[in-house]
Amino acid sequence: MTHSHSQATILKLFREADREFVSGARISAALGVSRTAVWKQIGQLRQLGYQIEAAPAKGYRLLQAPDVLLAAEVQNELGTACIGREVVFYSETDSTNLRVHELGKSGVAEGVVVIADAQNAGRGRMGRSWLSPPGVNLYLSVLLRPAIAPRHACHLTFLSAVAVARTVAAVGEVTPQVKWPNDILVNGRKLAGLLNELDAETDRIRYLVLGIGVNLNMAAEQFPDDLRYPATSLLLERGEPVSRQRFTRTLLRTLDELYGLYRRSGFAPIMAAWQAYFDLVGRQVEVDCQEYRLRGKVAGLGEDGALLLELADGRTERVLAGDVRPL
């Protein structure tokens, strides 16, 4: 039995016992390991922040559980059809997107989710880094294998933005906006970023990685001074922390529901849902496309998700990638 399955089994026994003691013999039998190995597993759970009482002749009981994103906690009563069928948790990794790339290349079925408590090489769009301290936020990546042409891969960016926005509204109880193409804002400050990557041939996607980073319980002093864009967290917006476990489960359920809708009904309902959070239509913006900048009025979005920009000379420019700043 793997390390994470052992933890899941022990936590399940504790949940079923409902704060009563579970004997060492019972845990030992459930895991198929010695009492000494059980003691070691209990020690590892304690290191993660679980308060577990041990009593001679009685066994162990759970007094308090921390808000950690162990697979066993995230999958508890998750009930999704595809996304989250397998969850892999790291206390720290370089980047959850890189871990999912490895799984994608090895042929793992879609729906696997990789979560890290901290990342030491978190990545944002355009090669930027994504600050990823431990214990406060959500960093996760999902492996998908949609049967769509590579040119439609951007549909999944809009899908994940809708999922994050809906989860922020439901769990965070604040009103989010989407910033084209893949940031989530609250009161004009960046709360979440998406980095979706794909591995494809000319006519088919081998796999797609949905990378999602959300600032949940980050305090003001944890943000660096040199951010290119003002950032925030749900803690700062609400004045109180949110449960990372509840947020993550809600997000995975919402992603699962929207992915099912996309496979059944295509991009139109996803785009309509995304536009409900987009408030820049009709407004003057500047778009930084790295090599050049454009100024114009947002006329809407193309069917492929391109930003339609009405320039001063009356022409409409289709923008496929860039940083948008309202003027």
Rank of each mutant, 00 (worst) to 15 (best):
M1R: 06
T2D: 15
S6I: 00
Q7K: 14
L13A: 11
R19E: 14
R19I: 00
V22P: 02
A25Y: 02
I27G: 06
L31I: 03
V33R: 15
V33F: 00
T36A: 15
A37S: 11
V38W: 08
W39H: 15
Q44F: 00
L48Q: 14
L48P: 00
G49I: 00
Q51H: 12
I52D: 05
E53W: 01
A54D: 04
A55F: 06
A55L: 08
A57I: 00
K58N: 07
K58V: 00
G59A: 09
Y60N: 08
Y60G: 10
L62Y: 06
L63R: 13
A65Q: 09
A72G: 12
Q75K: 15
N76Q: 14
E77Q: 14
T80S: 11
F89W: 15
E92W: 00
L98H: 13
R99A: 14
V100W: 10
E102F: 02
L103E: 04
G104L: 04
G107C: 10
V108Q: 14
V108A: 14
G111N: 09
G111V: 12
V114A: 03
V114N: 05
V114E: 01
D117L: 06
A121V: 05
R125H: 11
S129A: 11
W130F: 11
V136K: 15
H152Q: 15
H152P: 02
S160G: 03
A163L: 08
A163T: 11
A165N: 04
R166Y: 03
A170G: 01
V171W: 12
T175A: 15
K179I: 02
K179L: 13
V186F: 09
L195A: 08
L195Y: 07
N196H: 02
L198Y: 06
R204L: 06
I205K: 01
Y207R: 07
V209H: 08
L210K: 00
N215G: 07
L216K: 10
M218N: 02
A219Q: 14
Q222F: 00
F223E: 09
R228I: 06
Y229S: 09
P241V: 03
S243P: 06
S243M: 04
R244P: 01
Q245R: 13
Q245S: 04
F247W: 08
F247P: 01
T248E: 01
T248N: 03
T250E: 11
R253Y: 04
T254A: 05
T254E: 15
L258W: 04
L258I: 04
G260C: 02
F267N: 02
P269N: 03
P269A: 04
I270H: 02
A273I: 04
Y277C: 10
Y277H: 12
V281D: 08
G282R: 09
V287W: 07
C289K: 04
R293S: 12
R295K: 12
R295N: 13
E303Y: 01
D304P: 02
A306M: 02
E310M: 08
A312P: 12
T316K: 05
R318V: 00
V319N: 08
A321D: 09
A321S: 14
G322P: 04
D323Q: 13
